[in-house]
Write a protein that binds this DNA or RNA. Structure first.
Length: 139
DNA sequence: ATTCTTACA
DNA sequence: TGTAAGTA
């Protein structure tokens, strides 16, 4: 893709209200994910958050993982660290980002498989919660 | 009218 | 996570 697209995708455009409608996430959740460094929206002079298309896409990925039962710790392990991929991107960064996505998919599988293995021996903080967690941990 | 932070349920 | 409170 063109270099200009990268700029447009990272351009701070919409306030949290619009992002809420775009992602079906509550303001609470969006701010919470920011606190845990899953996203890094820009700020206006008045301290208002301004999200980019990339931020929205990231939030949708986070939402998908949450719905799969992965918690923040797990998401941090399978998702690219903020600051990488998009914003600080070099010109030849398109492929590396694609590779990261593929790698993340594999990491998610490894994560779930890893959970299956260690579920027998207790004393470990799980990366999955809810129904999924109960299934794996036999609680 | 919206959003922000902090704090408690 | 939800929500109330007091601001900006």
């Amino acid at each position: 893709m063109a270099a200009g697209d990268e700029i447009r995708r990272n351009m701070a455009l919409f306030p949290i209200g619009i992002v809420m409608k775009l992602t079906d996430l509550t303001a609470r959740q969006i701010r919470y994910y920011e606190q845990h460094e899953l996203i890094q929206p820009a700020r206006t002079a008045g301290n208002q958050r301004l999200f980019s298309f990339n931020d929205v896409e990231r939030l949708l990925e986070i939402k998908a993982l949450i719905e799969k039962g992965v918690n923040i710790a797990g998401i941090k392990q399978v998702m690219n660290p903020v600051g990488e991929g998009a914003s600080e991107g070099t010109i030849m960064n398109e492929q590396s980002e694609v590779r990261r996505r593929e790698l993340s998919e594999k990491q998610l599988h490894r994560l779930l498989k890893q959970e299956l293995m260690v579920d027998k021996r207790m004393g470990r903080v799980s990366l999955i919660q809810g129904e999924l967690s109960r299934f794996f941990n036999n609680k």
